Structures are given as structure tokens and as C-alpha cells.
Lab assay of single mutants.
Amino acid sequence: MPGGGPEMDDYMETLKDEEDALWENVECNRHMLSRYINPAKLTPYLRQCKVIDEQDEDEVLNAPMLPSKINRAGRLLDILHTKGQRGYVVFLESLEFYYPELYKLVTGKEPTRRFSTIVVEEGHEGLTHFLMNEVIKLQQQMKAKDLQRCELLARLRQLEDEKKQMTLTRVELLTFQERYYKMKEERDSYNDELVKVKDDNYNLAMRYAQLSEEKNMAVMRSRDLQLEIDQLKHRLNKMEEECKLERNQSLKLKNDIENRPKKEQVLELERENEMLKTKNQELQSIIQAGKRSLPDSDKAILDILEHDRKEALEDRQELVNRIYNLQEEARQAEELRDKYLEEKEDLELKCSTLGKDCEMYKHRMNTVMLQLEEVERERDQAFHSRDEAQTQYSQCLIEKDKYRKQIRELEEKNDEMRIEMVRREACIVNLESKLRRLSKDSNNLDQSLPRNLPVTIISQDFGDASPRTNGQEADDSSTSEESPEDSKYFLPYHPPQRRMNLKGIQLQRAKS
């Protein structure tokens, strides 16, 4: 015994090295194993092979420090690593049964499904019991997946119906949107047309105001020219009257000059006056001389005659003075006559000038009245044309509004008919989907599995289990394997941990 101590140590070291070499393959693929292994699927088989106990299973599945599946799978690998070579062998058998691809990844061999460990530990009855539990578990999982698949199909059909409904609603909204954009385009076109009409109206108003201003300026210029013409006519008439007055005065002077006595007659009258003065002096001298030589009687007679002569001279002087006064009065009367005649001529000139001015103003008033009548006639014609244009424009607008209203009513009726057609199509689609759903539900009910399987069917299934373990590994792997896509769409199922009653199965096998 003492001599065998070193050999035992060498043997233990060799086993430990082999164990480390075995687990080295697992550690190399630890990331892939932790990512894809579900500990809840492996722990029943590991407990059946007595590699882990209930406490280890509870620690792996329910520990609060292991929230994710990767953490739980890593903890399970750590626990199996502590179990040595047996933990490695049982772990590979569980991978061979549940995850053939991972088994091939770790060992590089094809899975054979021999279950040597569980046969050694529990015997064939334990293997049968384990396989029966796994089959029931798989059936329950398949039923749950079928239910989930039916629910998802129903949800899918519902979503398809909602999608069709949303599509129809979208078509309806597109119809309304198209109608909205069309009405918006019509409104924009009408606004552009309105702005264009306003611009045209403004341009016409500006043109009309400009023409009116030009016409008023032309009328004012015409009036100024007419006033200048009238003033020139007035000056012409005044000059004609002055010329006529000057002509009359010149004719009067000419007549006075023609009626003036001649120079010879004046000289002859002056000679006669001198001769008479000479004779008068001679007679006076004779009379003076006679007075001195005459007697007293003759002197008395001469005195009487002288007195008579003096009286006659006085009378004559009075007559001469009277004649002079009369001549002066006649001259003054002639001057007054000439003055009055001049005033008369001036008044006649003024009267004729005023008459011509009156005629001029009368003509001017007639011209202004004619212009006013023409302006009123043009204004009435413009008003009439404007009223006709406004009436025609309003009539066109009324007809346009009428046609637009008819078009809008027809478009609304068309839209309502399209919407009604879309709604009826939606109703038809809904009815078809309901009919299809009812038909599929009836087919699913016919094809669904019963909840409680008979014992004979279970025994028959387990009677055929042994050949399947040898020759149909691919079928078992397809039913027991969970793909990543299934984990996305289906909830994980945790079967209840219970042991099955095998009395009925044993009785059935005894009868057979």
C-alpha cells in the first residue's frame, strides 16, 4: 500500500489531465453553448442521470443573480465542470439528445442517441419513463405552439383585415386629398384670375382717368384759346370803332377846312374895312368942321342928330352885343352839340362793343353748352356701355358659378359613389376574411389534438420509441430542437415537474 501511493497520485493526475482536456473543448465553445442552450431543457435529463440535484437545479433556474438565459447556462456549465468526467459525459449526452448541432460542434462527431448513462443509472424502465415524459412534454409544447400558431394566424388575419381596411381608408383619404388639391388648384386659379381682372380693371381705370385728364386739359386749352380769340375780336371791334371815330373827325375837319373863306376874300374885306374906317374919319372931320361953321339952329339939329346917332349907336351896340352873345351862345351850343355828338359816338361805340361782347359771350355760352351736351352725351354713352359690360360680366359670372356648381355637385356625387364603392369593397373584403377565418377555424378544430390522450396510444408510441432511437435521429431532433426563430415568436414553456403513473402502461404491456 505505501508503495502504491505514487502510482495512485500519477493516476489521479492523469485523470485530472484527461478531464481538463475534455472540458477544454467545452470551454472553447462556451460562448456558443451559453448563447443557445436552454438550461430548463437540460436539467431534467441531468437530474435523471443524478449529475445534479434539486438544489443545483433551483440555483440554475431560479437564482435572482442569474437574470438572463446566458448567465444560467454559464452557471450550469460551471456546476457540471465540478462534476468531473461524469458531468462531461452526461452533458454531451444531453447535447446529443437536445442540441445535435452543438454536440457536433463540441465533439466533431455525429449524434447517435445511445443514452448509456441513464440506462446504467435507471435501467430501461427509467429510460422509458424519461422518454415518455419527454414525449408528453413535446406534445404539450407542440399543442402550445399550435395554439400560439393559431392565435398568430388569427392575429395575422386580423392584421391583414386591418391592413385592407387601412388601405381602403388610405384610398378614401387619397380621394379626399386629391379632391382637396383640386379644389385648392381651382381656388388658386380663381385667385389668379381675380387678381388679373383687378389689374385689368385698375389699368382701365388709370387709362380712363388719364384720358379724362387729357380731355379736361384739352377742353381747358380750347376754352383759353376761345377766350383769347374773343379778346382779340373785342380788341378788333374796339379798334374798328376808334378808326371809324377818327375817320368821322377827319371828315369834319376836312369839311371845315373846305368851308373856310379864301385869302383873297379876307384881304378884300380888310380893304373894305380900311376904306370904311377912312371914310368914317373923313366924315367925322367934316362934321367937326361943320359944327364950327354952322348956326345955332343947325347946331341944335346936329345935337339932336348926334344924340339920335348916339342912341342909334347905343342901340346898335346893344344889338351887336346881343348878336355877339347870341353868337357866343350859338358857339357854345355848337360846342355842346359837338361834345354831345362825340359822347353819342362814344356811347354808340361802347354800345356796339357791348353788343359784340354780348354776342361773343352768347356764342361762347352756346359753345360751352354744346360742349357740355357733348360731354353729357359721352358720359351717358359711357355709363350705358359700362352698365352693359357689367350686366354681361355679371351674367357670365352667374353662368360660370352655375356651371361650377354643377361640376362641383357632379364631382361630389362621383366622390360619394367612389367612397360608397370603396366601403362596399371593404365590406366584401371583411365578409370574405370572416368566411375564410371561419373555414380555417373549423379546419383547425378538426385537426387539433385532444387534450387527454388514451393510455393505449401512449403505450403504442413508446413501443415504437426504441427503433426510432436507432434510425431516425433527424426526426427526433426536428421535433425536440428549438430554433432561434421559434424563440422569437413563441413563449418558452415550462412543464410541471411531476412523475407519471406507469401502472397503466405496465398492465397494457403485460396484456400485449
Rank of each mutant, 00 (worst) to 15 (best):
G4Q: 10
G5P: 12
E7I: 09
M8R: 13
M8I: 14
M8V: 13
D9W: 09
D9K: 10
D9Q: 13
Y11P: 12
Y11H: 14
M12G: 10
T14P: 12
T14W: 11
D17N: 12
D17G: 12
E18K: 12
E19I: 12
A21K: 14
L22S: 14
W23S: 07
W23Y: 07
N25W: 10
N25P: 15
E27G: 06
E27Y: 02
R30E: 01
H31A: 13
M32A: 08
M32C: 09
M32S: 09
L33Y: 02
L33D: 00
S34C: 14
Y36C: 14
N38Q: 10
P39V: 10
K41R: 10
L42W: 00
T43Q: 00
Y45A: 01
K50Y: 07
V51H: 01
V51Q: 01
V51M: 06
V51D: 04
V51W: 01
I52T: 01
D53M: 03
E54S: 05
Q55S: 05
Q55M: 12
D56I: 01
D58F: 01
L61S: 03
N62I: 08
A63F: 08
P64S: 13
L66K: 00
L66P: 00
S68A: 09
S68Q: 01
K69G: 00
I70Y: 11
N71Y: 03
A73M: 06
G74A: 14
R75P: 01
L76F: 05
L76N: 01
L77H: 01
L77C: 03
D78K: 03
D78E: 03
I79Y: 02
I79F: 02
I79H: 01
K83Y: 05
G84F: 04
R86Y: 01
G87N: 03
Y88E: 04
V89G: 09
V89I: 10
V90Y: 11
L92M: 10
E93C: 07
E93Q: 14
S94N: 01
L95M: 15
L95V: 07
E96G: 12
F97P: 06
Y98G: 10
Y98Q: 09
Y98L: 14
Y99R: 03
L102R: 04
L102I: 03
Y103R: 04
Y103P: 01
P111Q: 04
P111K: 05
R114G: 10
F115A: 14
S116I: 04
V119S: 15
V119F: 15
V120E: 05
E121H: 15
E121I: 05
E121V: 06
E122P: 14
E122G: 09
E122Q: 04
G123W: 15
H124M: 14
H124W: 07
E125P: 13
G126P: 13
L127H: 05
L127F: 13
H129N: 03
H129A: 07
H129K: 04
F130Q: 06
M132F: 15
V135S: 09
V135T: 07
Q139W: 10
Q139R: 10
Q140T: 09
Q141E: 10
Q141G: 12
Q141F: 09
Q141S: 09
M142K: 11
A144H: 12
K145P: 08
K145M: 13
K145R: 14
D146E: 13
